[in-house]
Amino acid sequence: MADDIKPRIRVPANPKKGEVIEVKTLITHPMETGQRKDAAGATIPRKIVNTMTVTFNGKPVFQAKLEPAISANPYLSFHMRAEESGTLSFTWKDDDGAEYKAEQKIAVT
């Protein structure tokens, strides 16, 4: 159900230069743990988003490595110092090799 996977990002609209802002992210994803069994008793294979990488104007800001202990539709918030206007780029990596990408522009005042 890869077409159901949709990232969402929320940042403050117009942060002041130098302000530390909170970046909230959420990606719709089942985060299948690999522990569950289907009705026939067969183990449902693990399928989670295992990594989220964030860069700002190409510079690394934040990275998260996730385990099956992270809830479905993983929500993740972190902070960033907004020194200049630019673009935050997000990449989520799936166990099956797929990558989901999103971008968020930030304009400091």
Binding site: F62, A64, E67, A69, S77, R81
Partner: peptide, 29 residues
């Protein structure tokens, strides 16, 4: 976490650009 089938939850890499070392996640327990 010490009470799940596997202990790992998450690992984060931060940089000076982070500004504040605070992370929120939602965890299965």
């Amino acid at each position: 976490a010490d009470g799940n089938p596997n202990p790992g939850v998450a690992s984060f890499t931060l940089t000076p650009l982070s500004g504040k070392a605070e992370v929120q996640i939602r965890v299965r327990m």
